[in-house]
C-alpha cells in the first residue's frame, strides 16, 4: 500500500484553489498596473493607485468611517451580546427555546431587508442622523455573530465554577469579570474579530443607511466605480482584503481558526 494521492484529485484540488484565488490574484495584479484603466496582467508596475486612495478625500473619510463603525459597532454589540449570550446559556432550562432563535434572526433575514427596514424606521421614521443610523445598523448586523460565538464558548463553560466562586465570598457581579469572562476569553476575541470583519466588509445594510457626506469604504468603492474605471477600485479592494487577512492572521495566531468555524 502506498499513500500516493491520485493525480486527478491533485488536479481537482488545484482547480478549486484557482477558482477561489484566481479573482483575488487578478485584482491584486490589476491594482499594481501603471495604466489608467483596469487591466490584467498589469502593464508596468506602480503603486500610484494605492497613493491615489489617499489623494481622494472621499476614500480617506470612508476608511475612517468604516473603522469607526467596525470598532464601535462591534464594541457595542459585545456589550449587548455577551450578557445576552450569558443569560441564554445560564438560564437555558428556564427560558423558552425560541428566545435564542430570536437573537440570531438578523442572520436568517436577508441583509438587504434589514437595511431597508432600518432605513424606513431609524432614518425616515425616527429621523436619526446618518452617522448614528449607520452605527445602529452595524451593531445590529453583528450582534447575532457575537451571540453565536460567545454562546459556543459558554456551552462548554461549567456554571458550577461560578457558584464555587460565589460560595467563597465573591460578589456575583465581580464573579462575572474574574471567573466567567477569563474562561470565555477566546470566544469573546473570536466574536470581536468575526464581527469586525463582517462590519468592515458590509454592503447591503450600509447601502441603505449611508447618506450625504457619510459613507463606508465598500459603498464609496461602489460609488467610485460608477464614475471611474481606474485601478483605484482594485487597490481599494486589496486594502479591504489585506485588512481582513491581517485580522484573520491575528485570529489564527492567537486562537486557531477552529474557534471561528465552530
Amino acid at each position: 500500500m502506498t499513500n500516493r494521492i491520485h493525480p486527478v484529485l491533485i488536479a481537482f484540488t488545484i482547480l478549486i484553489y484557482l477558482f477561489l484565488l484566481g479573482p483575488l490574484i487578478i485584482i491584486f495584479g490589476a491594482s499594481l498596473s501603471d495604466t489608467t484603466y483596469l487591466t490584467f496582467p498589469p502593464q508596468g508596475l506602480s503603486l500610484r493607485w494605492f497613493e491615489n486612495i489617499w489623494e481622494i478625500s472621499a476614500f480617506r473619510r470612508t476608511i475612517v468611517t468604516s473603522l469607526q463603525m467596525a470598532i464601535l459597532g462591534t464594541s457595542i454589540a459585545l456589550l449587548i451580546g455577551i450578557p445576552a449570550a450569558y443569560a441564554l446559556n445560564r438560564y437555558r432550562i428556564a427560558l423558552p427555546g425560541w428566545l435564542s432563535t430570536l437573537f440570531v434572526l438578523p442572520i436568517l433575514v436577508p441583509e438587504i431587508v434589514i437595511g431597508f427596514s432600518l432605513l424606513r424606521s431609524v432614518t425616515v421614521q425616527a429621523g436619526i442622523p446618518v452617522w448614528y443610523a449607520l452605527l445602529i445598523g452595524h451593531t445590529l448586523l453583528v450582534i447575532p455573530y457575537v451571540i453565536r460565538v460567545v454562546s459556543a464558548s459558554l456551552a462548554s463553560f461549567d456554571f458550577s465554577i461560578e457558584e464555587a466562586a460565589v460560595s467563597l465570598g465573591s460578589h456575583p457581579a465581580k464573579t462575572f469579570f474574574t471567573i466567567v469572562l477569563p474562561n470565555i476569553r477566546s470566544g469573546v476575541i473570536a466574536a470581536f474579530i468575526l464581527s469586525f470583519i463582517t462590519s468592515i466588509n458590509d454592503v447591503s445594510v450600509s447601502l441603505f443607511l449611508t447618506g450625504p457626506g457619510i459613507s463606508t469604504l465598500p459603498i464609496q468603492l461602489l460609488a467610485h466605480m460608477e464614475q471611474f474605471f481606474d485601478p483605484t477600485i482594485a487597490s481599494v479592494s486589496v486594502v479591504l482584503m489585506l485588512l481582513t487577512i491581517i485580522v484573520m492572521i491575528i485570529v489564527e495566531r492567537t486562537l486557531g481558526l477552529a474557534i471561528v468555524a465552530k
Binding site: A164, S167, L168, S170
Partner: peptide
C-alpha cells in the same frame, strides 16, 4: 449566597 460563609465541595470539582 456570597455572604453565607459556607465551604462547598462540588461533584465536578468546579475548580477555576
Amino acid at each position: 449566597a456570597h455572604q453565607r460563609d459556607i465551604g462547598l465541595v462540588f461533584q465536578n470539582y468546579a475548580l477555576f
